[in-house]
Design a protein around this nucleic acid. Structure first.
Lengths: 136, 136
DNA sequence: TTGCCACGTGAAGTCGGCTTCAGGTCAAGC
DNA sequence: GCTTGACCTGAAGCCGACTTCACGTGGCAA
């Protein structure tokens, strides 16, 4: 595979170079070397960054993602933790599906206020039980 | 329905009272009145808060949620916007399903590093295309 | 060989979403 | 009637995730 400088990585991912440096400091990515002062990245960093972006939209913090994806090359990952994350994600997905259905209904429904529409409320009630306690 | 003071709402939702006041300032919830200085909430605020929590786990900002749920009682919601949100959410859900599958595979897979496991990479590659551009 | 400018660094600033604090108020139990 | 403790308020503080800044460095085209 090829080697990329930070500007190329930035172009491919849409992330500003400053963010890439920040991710490096946080241990999420690593350059394979330097050309003078300048970082040299292996092209595989692009996959890594895609995975990081994915983790972000799943609501994981950079720290959690670092734990999953490993400091450099994902050495020693706790498989139990991964399975737990997958389960948590699964629960989140189910709730989001409900929310999506609720939003779609709300977009179509003629009730004056969604919170007064029985259908909407039923849909929401089904998904609202027990928050994930993810927020601290 | 009944009326609740802020402490009861806090107990039912698990949210600290300060957060409830903050949400009120942001226009996400409203008290139906006061008892002296103290806020009095209608019990329906609980549903509203469940919906807000749901929106948060879906990655919406408080401002977006306020726009969807309305200042008080969800008056005049843009149905087109709701449908768009539902579509965006749907795309997010599909990507999260891939991530979940990837995590499950990684938890079971014996490859030394997930990023080197062909199965994991194939799963990820399938979901990594085109980020939602949700972040700013 | 030189000069430009993309890249580098550490530190400070920003923003959203709370959380904490200092100091005041008042409903309720004694 | 008086104390007490839950509530109130506005302002400040904190945390995560970046973003911006001020200034230094060196690869490379001319």
């Amino acid at each position: 595979m090829g080697e990329l400088d930070i500007a190329q990585v930035a172009r491919h991912t849409g992330l500003p170079a400053a963010t890439l440096r920040y991710y490096e400091r946080r241990g999420l990515i690593a350059a394979i070397g330097r050309h003078g002062l300048r970082r040299v990245f292996d092209a595989s960093v692009l996959e890594r960054l895609a995975l990081i972006a994915l983790g972000r939209t799943a609501g994981f913090s950079l720290e959690e993602i670092a734990a999953m994806v490993g400091p450099h090359g994902a050495p020693r990952i706790d498989r139990r933790m991964l399975a737990d994350k997958a389960d948590a994600l699964d629960r989140t997905i189910h709730r989001l599906e409900k929310l999506r259905d609720g939003l779609r209904h709300a977009a179509a429904c003629r009730a004056p206020s969604h919170l007064e529409c029985p259908t909407f409320r039923r849909i929401m009630r089904a998904s609202a039980r027990k928050r994930t306690a993810k927020r601290r």
